[in-house]
């Protein structure tokens, strides 16, 4: 039987994380589900519920945004200050599961689990987000691109916890997130996250098709050179499909996923096309 803890500060939580078999509890949507399924038996459960510093979304004067680890998907999905390119993350949050689960699940919980079919990883990579980690020796920030290292594995050390994600200011532009699913709210068969700035910057990430989000500077550059050109978009999609490392699972085969990547990308671009100044 596990012990239960409700620390008031991040530092206390990190100290408690040193206990053998300790697990952090955020919204419970993944951790408790795994406990119920007998996949995890934590020896100590450290609830982050009472840590004020982990909550909420802050928008700074320079246009950057900090989203605390305990921010619920509902809050991210409903935050009107997340617009322009940040729509990408807002849309990703709004497409997770269903209203009740969005009211439970958190940014930190979802990102830390690093489920390749989940929605935040691709959106965060497309936006060039930084993941903030805190451990016994202090705080550090690493790019989302380097955070998702393998299937359900992240760059966080055993005694580190995710405290927030930070979206750097990218200036005006459009953001978009779309996933292909069997039913609404399911994990993605393939997802595409776009961050397109009015200054001509292109950043694409593909989710659901490998251990972490797929991205390619070459693919981004191809579209940036000829914004709005369908051929370039499909070529970029082919590059991303080659980089993908999908698996066959209950939702779709790996071959199908590779086939879908360029098409979903083209479909996403056709929708944002009108709003993207560089292409218009």
């Amino acid at each position: 039987m596990a012990s239960f803890h409700r620390p008031k500060t991040t530092q206390e939580a990190i100290a408690l994380l040193a206990m053998p078999g300790a697990r952090l509890l955020a919204g419970g949507a993944s951790l408790v589900a795994m406990m119920n399924a007998g996949l995890l038996t934590p020896e100590a459960i450290v609830s982050l519920k009472d840590i004020e510093a982990l909550r909420g979304i802050s928008v700074f004067a320079d246009g950057s945004v900090r989203i605390g680890a305990m921010t619920r998907h509902r809050e991210t999905a409903e935050n009107r200050e997340l617009h322009g390119c940040f729509d990408c993350l807002r849309m990703a949050a709004g497409g997770i599961a269903n209203p009740v689960v969005r009211n439970m699940g958190t940014m930190g919980g979802s990102v830390s689990l690093a489920d390749p079919g989940a929605d935040y990883p691709a959106a965060l990579v497309a936006l060039g987000a930084m993941v903030e980690l805190e451990g016994p020796t202090g705080r550090r920030r690493i790019p989302a691109r380097k955070f998702f290292v393998d299937w359900y594995a992240t760059a966080a050390q055993p005694q580190e916890m995710l405290t927030s994600v930070v979206l750097p200011s990218v200036g005006p532009g459009v953001g978009y997130y779309r996933k292909l699913t069997r039913v609404t709210g399911d994990f993605a068969i393939v997802s595409v996250a776009l961050c397109l700035t009015d200054a001509g910057g292109v950043s694409i990430a593909i989710g659901g098709c490998g251990p972490g989000p797929i991205f390619s500077d070459e693919a981004n550059a191809l579209i940036a050179q000829r914004p709005g050109d369908t051929g370039s978009i499909l070529k970029a999609g082919e590059i991303l499909a080659k980089l993908a490392d999908p698996v066959d699972d209950v939702r779709a085969s790996a071959d199908y996923r590779r086939l879908v990547i360029p098409r979903l990308l083209a479909s996403a671009f056709s929708i944002v096309h009108e709003n993207w100044k560089s292409a218009a």
């Binding site: 239960f4 409700r6 419970g28 408790v32 119920n36 209203p99 009740v100 689960v101 009211n103």
Partner: peptide, 13 residues
Amino acid sequence: GWPVRACLTLAAD
């Protein structure tokens, strides 16, 4: 006041 899944919520929380 907010809906949650009671099966995914720990009583101690």
